[in-house]
């Protein structure tokens, strides 16, 4: 691809702030993609994004069927019991076809690839969580200041 002499991106820090399946995957794909391109990559999970790295919740993320215009169905239908589970299983099947791994495996892959995974301190305190609540790939719980320090010289992407 022609870059017309522009400086290539060498480092990205990706913030994941949502806990829905469709809110989490873009950040994971971008972080992994960055490593695939030889860029430094780190993930910073904040607010409900923490669900994606919590042992108890990371295997049960769901697609949002309410308040999600992208679903193209009336909100009242999306609110029916089982609708979110149904949409989630549909999406998971499609992702499996594309060889996109489940969240836990994806995080292991990113970690093995040298990507770093952090939890946001303010959110961790707010939800009364601790390091033990997270999957082993989470390197540290860091403040926003530390996040900016670690992001020095790179691009920050908020999802």
């Amino acid at each position: 691809m022609s870059t017309h002499g522009a400086e290539p991106i060498t480092k990205v820090s990706i913030v994941v702030s949502h806990g829905s399946l469709e809110g989490v995957y873009p950040g994971l794909i971008m972080a992994n993609g960055a490593r695939m391109e030889g860029m430094e990559a780190s993930l910073f999970f904040t607010f409900f994004g923490l669900d994606a790295i919590m042992e108890k919740r990371m295997d049960r993320l769901k697609v949002a069927t309410v308040g999600n215009p992208g679903m193209h169905m009336p909100t009242i239908l999306g609110a029916l019991p089982g609708m979110s589970a149904f949409a989630t299983s549909m999406m998971q099947k499609e992702m499996e076809k594309l060889d996109i791994p489940p969240v836990r495996e994806f995080l292991e892959m990113i970690n093995d690839a040298g990507g770093e995974i952090y939890a946001c301190k303010a959110s961790v305190d707010m939800f009364h969580l601790a390091k033990k609540d997270f999957c082993p790939q989470v390197k540290d719980i860091i403040s926003v200041g530390q996040f900016y320090e670690k992001s020095a010289g790179g691009q920050i992407i908020f999802t």
Binding site: N32, D99, M109, D112
Partner: peptide, 18 residues
């Protein structure tokens, strides 16, 4: 193949590959 397929099928895992 992309990385995912590579690590799943070549017998070389992600860490080794990088």
């Amino acid at each position: 193949p992309s990385i995912r397929k590579l690590t799943k099928e070549s017998g070389v895992d992600t860490k080794e590959l990088y």
